[in-house]
Each structure stands twice: as structure tokens, then as C-alpha cells.
């Protein structure tokens, strides 16, 4: 979706200002949102692409006016209700109205180290045959889906060159919508700054964007 999260190339967001010795978390509630989001993710009711899509659905004005962990909080509440783990009433009142729906796989403290170090790769051993190889010239499709996509707006309709083939990965545009993993090749595609931003941009510089076969067409 063409949401406020898709920030590449926007103007007017101000200078980048870095806090020299910032803490990992700035508030206790940020710690709790971080922990709850990860712990709830391990319930297995949604995947990381659905989690990103949930945050993207925060209304644009709110998204730009709130901080990172407020986006996470919005996404978490939305997913918990959407997947039936909490009712809208429970969320509104803060009072539980019954037990959790199914027997669930709840993350225990003793397993935290193990599950974090194992992670969960989105790489797959099999998928659709690759359509491109390094050196091929490609066009990023001019699509504007209402759902989740990892093809950023600033690259759509632009020409690039396949720089490297990362191998087969889950396709977030379907996985985030509950439409399956649709594993396919993911590539690093090189776009010159001039192609992206016109003749005023530096001739020498480029942006590398990771895109999948379904985002690309041959030139």
C-alpha cells in the first residue's frame, strides 16, 4: 500500500540528528512493547510480513506523528484482535473475558535464548525458477497494490541491473496477506541515483534494492 511508511525520497522530514549516547530503550513502556511483540509473535498466529503489514495500516498522519514502538503497539493490538486472541472488548476495557482460544505454544523464559539464536530464515530450498541473472537489465513494475508490498514507491517504473542473486526467499507481498509463501528468487537490484531522481542526482552513486522476481520485468 502507498502508506506513510514508504518514506524513500520524501521531502520535508527534517535533518537527521543523532543522539550521541542513547539508551537501547527510552521508556519502560518501550521495553514492554518490544518484549510483548516478540513473545506474541512466537504464538505462531502470524508471520513477520503480516506484522509489518499491520503496522503499515496505522493511519498516515498518526504514523508520522508517533515513534517506532508506538507503531509496534498499534500493530500488535491489531494482530491480537484480528487473529482472535483478544476481543475488541477486552482490548477496550483491559479486562479478560475468558481463556485464550486454543491450546497455544507460549514462549517460556528458558527457551528464549534458543529461539532467538535459531531465528527463522525466510530462505527456502525450493521455489520458482529464477527469471534473471546478474548483469540482466530489469524494470521494476509500476504497481500500487492496496495490500503489503516490499517494492518501494520510489523504485516503481525504474530501470535497474541485477547485481546479485540472493537465492530463493519467501515472497512478502503474498505472505503478508495470508496468501502463501510463494517462494522465488530475490535479487539485489542496482538503480543509479540518476534513474531514480533525475539529472540533478549524482552520476556516480546508486541504490541497491532487494526485489523478487514478481516485482521485475525484463527490459
Amino acid at each position: 500500500m502507498n502508506g506513510a511508511h514508504d518514506l524513500g525520497g520524501m521531502h520535508g522530514m527534517g535533518p537527521v540528528v543523532a543522539d550521541r549516547d542513547e539508551p537501547v530503550f527510552h521508556h519502560e513502556w518501550e521495553r514492554r512493547v518490544f518484549g510483548m511483540t516478540l513473545a506474541s509473535g512466537f504464538l505462531g498466529k502470524w508471520n513477520i510480513d503480516m506484522a509489518r503489514y499491520a503496522r503499515e495500516q496505522m493511519p498516515g498522519p498518526s504514523y508520522l506523528n508517533t515513534t517506532y514502538y508506538e507503531h509496534w503497539l498499534f500493530g500488535l493490538e491489531r494482530l491480537l484482535v484480528e487473529k482472535g486472541l483478544l476481543s475488541p472488548d477486552e482490548l477496550r476495557t483491559g479486562r479478560p473475558q475468558g481463556p485464550a482460544p486454543d491450546p497455544l505454544r507460549v514462549l517460556r523464559a528458558r527457551d528464549v535464548g534458543k529461539v532467538l539464536s535459531e531465528g527463522g530464515s525466510a530462505r527456502r530450498s525450493q521455489g520458482a525458477p529464477r527469471r534473471f541473472k546478474p548483469g540482466d537489465r530489469v524494470l521494476a513494475r509500476n504497481i500500487h497494490p492496496l495490500g503489503h508490498t516490499r517494492l518501494p514507491r520510489y523504485a516503481r517504473g525504474k530501470r535497474g541491473v541485477i547485481e546479485r542473486d540472493h537465492g530463493v526467499f519467501v515472497f512478502p507481498d503474498t505472505n503478508g496477506m495470508g496468501l502463501g509463501e510463494k517462494p522465488q528468487h530475490c535479487y539485489s537490484v542496482r538503480f543509479t541515483l540518476r534513474e531514480l531522481w533525475g539529472p540533478g542526482a549524482s552520476r556516480r552513486d546508486s541504490v541497491h534494492i532487494d526485489l523478487w522476481d514478481d516485482h521485475l520485468e525484463p527490459v
Binding site: 521495553r31 483491559g94 485464550a100 507460549v106 514462549l107
Partner: peptide
């Protein structure tokens, strides 16, 4: 926001969806 987060955490813990010790371990990591 603080109130919303506190309410959500007690809901998740009460309903057995989240183990508070696991939360602490995740944050500490």
C-alpha cells in the same frame, strides 16, 4: 500510551498468552 501498554500486558499475562519471565528475558537479551 503508558496506560495502554500496561493494560495490554496484564491482559496477555492474565490470558496466559505471554509468560512475564519470557518478556523479561527477551528485553534483557
Amino acid at each position: 500510551t503508558q496506560l495502554r501498554v500496561k493494560a495490554l500486558e496484564s491482559l496477555l499475562v492474565d490470558k496466559g498468552l505471554v509468560d512475564p519471565a519470557a518478556l523479561d528475558a527477551l528485553i534483557d537479551t
